[in-house]
Simulated scan of single mutants.
Amino acid sequence: MEHLPIHLPREARLGGPVQYRWMYPFERYMFHLKKKVKNLSKVEGSIVAQSLNEETSNFAQYYFAPNIQTKASRPGRYDDGGQRPVYHSYVPGIFQEIGRFSRKRKGIWLTEQEVSHIHTYILRNCEDILPYER
Score class of each variant (00 low, 15 high):
E2R: 09
E2M: 01
L4Q: 01
P5E: 01
H7G: 00
H7R: 04
L8P: 00
P9L: 00
P9H: 03
P9F: 01
R10P: 00
E11V: 12
R13C: 03
L14P: 00
G15L: 14
G16Q: 00
M23I: 09
M23K: 05
Y24M: 05
Y24T: 05
Y24A: 12
F26A: 06
E27L: 09
M30N: 01
F31D: 08
F31S: 06
F31G: 05
H32T: 12
H32P: 00
H32F: 09
L33E: 01
K34N: 11
K35V: 01
K38V: 05
K38N: 03
K38L: 02
N39C: 07
K42G: 02
K42T: 06
E44V: 08
V48W: 02
A49M: 08
A49D: 10
A49E: 13
Q50Y: 01
L52A: 11
N53L: 14
E54C: 08
E55W: 14
T56K: 10
T56Y: 07
S57D: 08
S57K: 12
N58I: 03
F59G: 03
A60W: 02
A60I: 07
Y62N: 14
A65Q: 09
A65P: 00
A65D: 11
P66C: 01
P66Q: 07
I68C: 11
Q69K: 12
Q69N: 04
Q69R: 14
T70I: 02
K71P: 01
K71C: 04
K71I: 06
R74W: 03
R74D: 06
P75Y: 07
G76M: 09
Y78R: 12
D79F: 15
D80N: 15
G81D: 06
G81A: 12
G81R: 10
G82R: 08
P85T: 04
V86F: 09
V86H: 10
Y87L: 05
H88G: 14
S89V: 13
V91D: 06
I94N: 10
F95H: 13
Q96A: 08
Q96P: 02
E97S: 15
E97H: 13
I98C: 09
G99S: 07
F101M: 12
F101G: 10
K106N: 14
G107A: 09
I108V: 15
W109V: 15
W109Q: 15
L110E: 10
T111G: 12
T111H: 08
Q113F: 11
E114R: 14
V115K: 15
S116W: 04
S116C: 07
S116M: 07
H119Y: 13
T120L: 13
T120K: 15
I122P: 02
I122R: 03
L123T: 05
L123A: 05
L123D: 11
N125E: 07
N125Q: 10
C126V: 09
D128I: 07
D128A: 13
D128G: 03
L130H: 06
P131L: 09
E133R: 13
R134T: 11
